[in-house]
Amino acid sequence: MTRRPTRTRLWALALAVLLLGCGAAGYTLRAAQRAGASRPSADASLTLDGTGERLFVRDTATGRVALAGRDGTRRTGGPVCDRFHAAGPTALCLQRRPGVPARAYAIVLDRRLHEVRRIALPGIPNRARVSASGRVLSWTMFATGDSYATSAFSTRTSILDLRTGYLVKDMEQIPLTLEGRRHHAPDVNYWGVTFARDDNRFYATVSTDGRTYLVEGDLRAWSARALRANAECPSLSPDGTRIAFKKKVSDDPKSPWRLYVLDLRSGREQPLADRRSIDDQVLWLDGRTLAYGHAGDVWAGPADGSGAPRVLARGASSPAMVR
Rank of each mutant, 00 (worst) to 15 (best):
Val17Ser: 14
Asp274Gly: 12
Ala37Trp: 03
Leu167Glu: 05
Gly217Arg: 01
Leu290Glu: 01
Trp257Ile: 00
Thr194Ile: 03
Asn126Ala: 15
Asn126Ser: 12
Asp218Gln: 07
Arg268Lys: 09
Ser255Phe: 11
His294Glu: 09
Cys22Leu: 14
Tyr213Leu: 02
Arg242Cys: 04
Ile174Met: 13
Pro302Cys: 02
Ser138Ala: 13
Ala204Asn: 03
Pro186Thr: 15
Pro319Phe: 01
Asp161Gln: 05
Phe202Leu: 10
Ala308Val: 11
Thr157Phe: 11
Thr73Val: 12
Ala204Thr: 06
Ser255Arg: 13
Arg182Leu: 13
Gly99Thr: 08
Thr90Met: 05
Pro40Met: 12
Leu312Arg: 02
Gly315Lys: 04
Pro319Ile: 02
Thr140Cys: 06
Gly180Tyr: 08
Cys81Glu: 00
Ser317Gln: 09
Trp139Gly: 03
Thr208Pro: 11
Ser151Lys: 13
Phe245Thr: 01
Cys233Phe: 15
Asp286Arg: 08
Arg7Phe: 02
Ser41Lys: 09
Gln95Val: 05
Cys93Leu: 11
Leu19Met: 14
Ala224Arg: 08
Asp286Val: 08
Leu227Phe: 03
Gly267Ser: 05
Tyr27Pro: 03
Ile124Glu: 01
His85Cys: 06
Thr164Phe: 14
Thr155Asn: 13
Pro319Met: 07
Thr90Cys: 08
Val282Asn: 00
Ser38Glu: 15
Phe56Gly: 03
Ala86Arg: 00
Val65Ala: 06
Gly23Glu: 11
Pro125Glu: 05
Arg135Asp: 09
Lys169Arg: 13
Cys233Ala: 15
Val206Phe: 04
Glu269Lys: 05
Arg127Tyr: 12
Gly123Met: 01
Asn189Trp: 12
Pro256Arg: 09
Val193Tyr: 00
Asp252His: 08
Trp257Cys: 00
Asn189Pro: 07
Asp198His: 00
Arg70Leu: 12
Thr76Lys: 04
Met321Ile: 05
Tyr260Trp: 10
Ser151Leu: 12
Thr177Lys: 01
